[in-house]
Design a binder for these strands. Structure first.
Length: 452
DNA sequence: TCGTGTCTGCTTAGGAGCGT
DNA sequence: ACGCTCCTAAGCAGACACGA
């Protein structure tokens, strides 16, 4: 009997490790497995019904041309010798990260939204775990020093959590005399301003707020999903708008006209209309989103929502003193100072004025203390992907019911929701003995409390 | 109609630094 | 000391629109 195993989303290259195991496993059971046919391309009439092993004792079930193949993942993983703490049905298996060696061609610098100089490795493209890796972050100069990687080195590359490319370190035995120690630049590679490294901090900053790189990062941050969420405006268009001088700061987006947009290369009527309506729609985002979008240092999505709920308007926030700010729980002196400073800067105030004139919502009712939901006081963490909804949606539901959703597992975490291909959070949860929830159980929980 | 460019959606690691 | 948030990073398929 021939079995074709079909996995969505992997058109090329090797299968994810768990999938590989499944192939072998089916083989062991006496099926002839044809992994080559199992590619995403060109497969017709093969449907995948793939119940996750995270579901308690649920069968793994493949339907192939009307033939249903069932198997028990519990036994499968047990046979592999991969048995974690209870409940064992949630144990997933991953190979250790697959590594490869390649050449470090150079180290280049990105400028972050806050002006940080972020070095990254430019690598000779290499296949690692099924994808081509050509770049990887090096975090900062200390990290480069710790790893002691030099330009020209042969380096080991892996995919952390099987996803993110990472430089592990050099293969010192392969080092030739021609390697070069990397030196962080003294000047911003984009605007040439001498960089500063505040005492006690590890990152170097470009102190020029008008640096084009920072303007670009601010703009992309402003329009991003978590902030004002302007659909259709990605990095490329941000770049074009800045380069053409149509936009100098985020507030200028709101005075773009159709004529201006249509004049751009590869921007037609349709795109221009879509973009303008997306911009229009963004005027009504919740206050927290706007505060986040302003890009104040130390104010991310969480603190922004907190500030919105405390002050209720941009004006009230702008008037707040350092003491008032620091009096808020979880806001300390650094954050308070950062916020206060932001609203003392003339150009920032100019942007805010312009946003106001454009009709961007600047205030909202201060919500009464959030009603105590059924999940009040419970901390959730999600790992892996959920089939039924994006992670952000799941987190929204959790908050709606009064729970909190964070992204690192600690001893205080109450539940870890395990989706498909979970990462290291699952390991950590097992280590702490944190209660695990399969996607089905999670959905059941939401249903119980009427969230869905 | 079709090749090409752009954006979206979806994932996780981990250093740094803040708050308590 | 510990927990949490901020911030950035890479990759790829697929949807959609442009423009010839």
């Amino acid at each position: 009997l021939d079995i074709w195993v079909y996995q969505l989303g992997w058109a090329d290259g090797p299968y994810p490790p768990t999938h590989w195991e499944t192939l072998h496993w089916l083989q062991d059971m006496g099926f002839r497995v044809n992994p080559e046919i199992g590619r995403y391309d060109g497969l017709e009439g093969v449907e995948r019904h793939y119940h996750q092993w995270a579901d308690r004792r649920h069968d793994l079930e493949y339907e192939i041309d009307g033939l249903v193949v069932k198997a028990d993942p519990f036994q499968h993983y047990e046979r592999l010798g991969v048995v974690g703490r209870e409940p064992r049905w949630a144990t997933a298996y991953k190979f250790p990260p697959i590594q490869a060696t390649t050449k470090l061609l150079g180290i280049e610098i990105n400028i972050g939204r806050t002006g940080t100089l972020n070095p990254y490795a430019v690598l000779e493209p290499v296949q690692v775990g099924g994808v081509t890796v050509s770049k990887a972050t090096l975090h900062n100069e200390e990290d480069i020093r710790r790893k002691d990687v030099r330009v020209g080195d042969t380096v080991i590359v892996q995919r952390a959590g099987d996803v993110i490319p990472q430089v592990v370190g050099p293969v010192v035995s392969k080092r030739t005399g021609r390697v070069k120690v990397f030196v962080m630049p003294d000047r911003c590679p984009v605007c040439g301003t001498p960089v500063v490294r505040p005492e006690g901090e590890v990152m170097r900053y470009c102190p020029n707020p008008a640096c084009p790189a920072q303007a670009f990062r601010w703009l992309t941050h402003f329009v991003s999903r978590g902030a004002m969420d302007i659909e259709g405006l990605g990095e490329s268009w941000c770049y074009v708008l800045l380069e053409q001088g149509l936009v100098k700061n985020p507030a200028d987006i709101y005075s773009l006209t159709k004529e201006q947009l249509v004049g751009l290369e590869r921007m037609g009527e349709k795109s221009a209309e879509n973009l303008l309506s997306a911009i229009e729609a963004s005027k009504d985002r919740p206050l927290g989103r706007l505060i986040f979008a302003l890009g104040i240092r130390h104010v991310g999505s969480e603190i922004a929502v907190l500030l919105a709920s405390q002050f209720g308007s941009i004006d009230a926030l702008a008037r707040a003193s350092v003491e008032e700010l620091a009096a808020i729980p979880t806001v300390g002196p650094r954050i308070a100072e950062s916020v206060h400073q932001y609203f003392r800067d003339a150009s920032n105030l100019g942007v805010i004025e312009k946003l106001r004139r454009a009709g961007v919502r600047m205030a909202e009712e201060i919500a009464a203390a959030p009603p105590e939901g059924p999940l009040a006081g419970l901390r959730f963490v999600i790992t892996g992907s959920l089939a039924s909804m994006p992670r952000s949606k799941a987190e929204e539901f959790i908050r709606q019911l009064g729970g909190s959703a964070s992204d690192s597992v600690t001893k205080k975490t109450d539940y870890v929701v395990v989706g498909e291909s979970p990462g290291s959070k699952l390991r950590k949860a097992q280590q702490y003995g944190t209660r695990l929830l399969s996607e089905q159980e999670f959905l059941e929980l939401l249903r119980q409390h009427g969230a869905i």
